[in-house]
Design a protein around this nucleic acid. Structure first.
Length: 475
RNA sequence: GUCCCCAUCGUCUAGCUUGGCCUAGGACGCCGGCCUUUCAAGCCGGCAACACGGGUUCAAAUCCCGUUGGGGACACCA
């Protein structure tokens, strides 16, 4: 924790128009990391001033996503819609001070003028038509516009991008109150950021151009201007802004495919930020090491393969008990509740250690546990046809016969039995193990053959070999 | 069109602030090998980048300018 920065207050301010997506989560993560690093406060604020597009379901989804990712907030969630009166009041203050004015240009008229300007290759900003008309107490539908400075420059010292200079001449007189009386985003953020004591505005790159419009608003309202940090965008494989057409973008989707939150968070933090060559960070390490000094200023392409690799790493690191717990909801979703399972001694926890080295996602892992925890085993017909042949049947049968007397039933005792058969029948390990594997698991890949038998136990092992022999013609 | 941002392997990045240690490092993926009862994992090795052009300098991936390319923003959305 650095001295002098412990009054840091940051916020994540999503608009609830859909579920939490990857880009939003990373913005939230950077905010959260910054707050935790400096021992400051992280605030969640829902920007729902657009009442047509905001939904309660979206708010719920965002909250759920944040919780899943482990990003806890210290204040909120605040809803901007609860603060509309305050925003209106501030807007009226600006009007009284002559810093804002009524505008009666209709949306249609504005649209037409924009098109004309564009056709002529001119700037498409508002032409200031109503600026000096001094309209008061409008009788027709009107919006309130903020009188942006037109002279000089607005300079933003961005924590990530450095100094950015904007000519005030390009600034629009932005609408701060709609004709329906509702405040707009630019007014609401400024007021809320100021009143909530936000010290650092950490948000997506796409807001860079909003900054020079908001800075004068802070000043006009008499508020201190916060510091800004604009984090680079996340791009799809074609280098355009990440969107649905690039595949799954909602955080929830990754949860459903079986990603661990730690893996997603680790992936996201490395997308744009780095600490030397280190790839894997515990949450604690991220908090300790995170800094805007090493945040990239260029956009980054989202790469599924690397995420998957990280997920596999985290699966390998997880203990059996933890994994078994993570797997439960996935099993239930497939209709396997606790009673429907034929669990080996030790439960799913006993199976998991053999699968965690192999699985990339939890969904994959669940699928692989099935041969050990369900009955009857699902048979891969193609594999059965290929490997469960009359040629191998006698050896399988012999093996089953001898295994009956084996005690205890373990790798140590099974290995000599199997070796003897290989010798007697002049078989290679591969030619015998593969049919046996298919007989036992119904598929061509599995953990080691002895481990499989241990997991199944003697009874189920014999039963499955028997069933396999039955399906071999003329044996 | 206007404004803003950006530019190292296919991708994420180290190096750039304080030029020489860079024959440009790591990671994912890919290819090959080892291990091996399958599938993975693991281990070893390989391919692969300083966008281009000018400067400045004894010396530039690193500093400056330009070009090109990419991204973003230009709503009574946020």
């Amino acid at each position: 924790m650095k001295r002098g920065m412990n009054d840091v207050r940051v916020r994540f301010a999503p608009s609830p128009t859909g579920s939490l997506h990857i880009g939003g989560l990373r913005t939230a993560l950077f905010n959260w990391l910054f707050a935790r690093h400096h021992g400051g406060k992280f605030i969640l604020r829902i920007e729902d001033t657009d009442r047509d597009r905001s939904t309660d379901e979206a708010i719920e989804a965002i909250v759920k996503g944040m919780c899943w990712a482990g990003l806890d907030w210290d204040e909120g969630p605040h809803r901007q819609s609860d603060r509309l009166d305050l925003h209106r009041q501030k807007a009226m203050e600006l009007l009284e001070q002559g810093k804002a004015y009524w505008c009666v240009c209709t949306p249609e008229a504005l649209e037409t003028r924009r098109k004309e300007a564009q056709a002529k290759g001119e700037s498409i900003k508002y032409d200031g038509r109503c600026r000096d008309r001094g309209l008061t107490a409008p009788t027709e539908p009107a919006v309130l516009r903020f009188q942006s400075p037109q002279l000089g420059q607005t300079v933003v010292e961005d924590l990530i991008k450095g100094t950015i200079v904007f000519e005030n001449a390009v600034l629009d007189d932005l609408i701060i109150l709609r004709s329906n009386g509702y405040p707009t985003y630019n007014l609401s953020v400024v007021i809320d950021d100021a009143l909530m004591g936000i010290t650092h505005v950490i948000r997506g790159d796409d807001h860079v151009n909003n900054t020079p419009r908001q800075v004068p608003l802070f000043e006009a309202l008499g508020y201190p201007v916060p510091k800004f940090a604009h984090v680079p965008m996340i791009l799809g494989s074609d280098k355009s802004r990440l969107s649905k057409r690039h595949g799954a973008t909602s955080v929830l989707a990754y949860q459903e495919i079986g990603y661990l939150p730690e893996a997603l968070v680790n992936y996201l933090v490395r997308l744009g930020w780095s600490h030397g060559d280190q790839e894997i960070f515990s949450i604690q390490e991220m908090i300790e090491k995170f800094s805007f000094d090493t945040v990239q200023s260029s956009a980054a392409v989202f790469n599924q393969e690397k995420l998957q690799w990280l997920n596999a790493e985290y699966i390998k690191q997880s203990g059996a008990r933890h994994l078994a717990e993570l797997l439960r909801p996935f099993l239930e979703k497939q209709g396997y509740d606790r009673d429907g399972l034929v669990q080996p001694p030790g439960g799913i926890e006993a199976v998991v250690p053999y699968l965690c080295e192999r699985a990339k996602t939890l969904v994959e892992m669940v699928e692989w546990t099935l041969p050990y925890i369900t009955e009857p085993v699902a048979m891969d017909e193609a594999a059965a046809g290929k490997f469960l042949t009359p040629t191998i049947a006698p050896s399988l049968n012999k093996f089953a016969e001898r295994v009956k007397t084996v005690a205890p039933f373990s790798k140590e005792t099974l290995e000599p039995v199997l070796d003897t058969i290989l010798e007697e029948d002049r078989l290679k390990m591969g030619t015998f193990a593969q049919p046996l594997r298919i007989a036992l698991t119904g598929r061509t890949f599995s953990p080691g053959i002895y481990e499989v038998m241990e997991l199944l136990g003697k009874e189920r092992t014999l039963q499955r070999i028997e069933q396999a022999l039955h399906r071999i013609p003329s044996s």
